[in-house]
Design a binder for these strands. Structure first.
Lengths: 215, 215
DNA sequence: CTAAAAATACCTGAAAACCGGTAGTGAAAT
DNA sequence: ATTTCACTACCGGTTTTCAGGTATTTTTAG
């Protein structure tokens, strides 16, 4: 199995290269910190599989996957990522990627993934497999998501007002006075907002509000 | 030189382990995906140098460095990071870290860093060295940090850690686990912080923390 | 017009935050 | 040497949040 690697972090790339070299039946053709260069040379190298990082400065792993799948559908693309994010994963599946591995995986997981790929099967991290099996985009319990976009579009106008007030440090009582609603209503709004934004407490709400420019 | 590694990404950890093994004069004692565990076992292992990732979920590399430098000042701490961020780097220098390497560095940079460390010199990435030389952080003794630095000067280091944790949305219990203190102590810290910053609730704390760049 | 969505309001119980203390230890400063 | 300060820890009581609801009205969209 001929492989090329793409990751903007040279150190990770070097390390992963060493790991891959130690796996039976793997031939590491080339490593790239530049997605553009990798794409340019893919014609020449004719790899079986491309492992690409997701978060990269100029060209994201998703864009790399899209390009490769459009031009060379026969080449398998596996995305390496730090985050278990259902929406990201779904987007990648739509493109037709052949795997999604996590940087928190260990070498065994990686070897297993290589085996699956060699059998023309898709390769996902255990954690990702669990996610895909356990319903869909609903993840409230275990991991609080890191880098997801907190766009406030799903909030109603009133809810945005409430969120702003909460983020300003107003108590439910003060907030309800200010917005001329009952404290119970304020609570309801806050609950709905927290559900929609997957926030578990006031601190989460404030961070989101600040990042969204509400305060 | 006895080394331990800390990074929440198992795959990176494995790869970096292989790289370090290939470097002359390096003995890799142990690798940890859990900063807490690493800190707990540091007494036993007695490493010369700790390489730690900066961005980690439960305990940041900065907190790891703070803890190690507080408890075992003789152990060198080198931070691995993805970003060339002056404010971050300055904060780490204040703590007294012995190096700041980038994940975009290559193996040669890494070997060079190890050499410097063995000579009791500080080890920085070329890109970071450039930044440090190009002005900026020369004002070391003075507390006048560049940027706005919202008034957190009255807080002790520990209190800043607590504030950061609170702003990240951790409950008192979770926070106390993370910082290895009792919930009561965490409460005390939070109280003192709120008094010092004239904050009345978590929302106020989060806003201040975000504006101060703690999160 | 009607159905859906949004906004309003309330209830309950467990958990957590909040606020007032007190108090020991160890390190640093005067 | 004594004081000061940071850090640690605990107590007791009050308030608030948080997570389940339920339910009515108003507004919006098809």
């Amino acid at each position: 199995m001929k492989i090329i690697l793409i990751d903007d972090h040279q150190l990770f790339l070097d390390g992963l290269g060493l790991i891959l070299d130690s796996i039976e039946g793997v031939e590491l053709l080339e490593k790239y910190t530049s997605p553009e260069q990798a794409i340019r040379l893919i014609e020449v190298l004719k790899p079986d599989v491309v492992f690409s990082d997701l978060d990269m400065p100029k060209l994201t792993g998703k864009q790399v996957a899209e390009h490769i799948k459009r031009v060379h559908p026969e080449i398998k693309v596996v995305i390496l990522s730090m985050h278990v994010d259902p929406t990201i994963i779904k987007g990648l599946l739509d493109i037709g990627v052949d795997g999604y591995l996590l940087k928190t995986d260990d070498i065994e997981d990686f070897e297993h993934a290589v085996k699956l790929l060699s059998k023309d099967k898709k390769a996902f991290s255990p954690a990702v497999t669990d996610l895909l099996n356990s319903g869909k985009t609903n993840s409230i319990g275990a991991g609080t998501s890191f880098g997801n976009e907190h766009d406030l579009s799903m909030l109603s106008n009133r809810e945005k007002e409430v969120l702003t007030a909460v983020a300003q440090g107003l108590s439910t009582k003060a907030l309800s006075d200010k917005l001329c609603i009952s404290p119970g209503t304020a609570e309801t709004h806050r609950k709905n907002i927290m559900r929609k934004l997957d926030a578990n407490n006031v601190a989460d709400l404030v961070r989101i509000a600040v990042k969204a420019g509400l305060v």
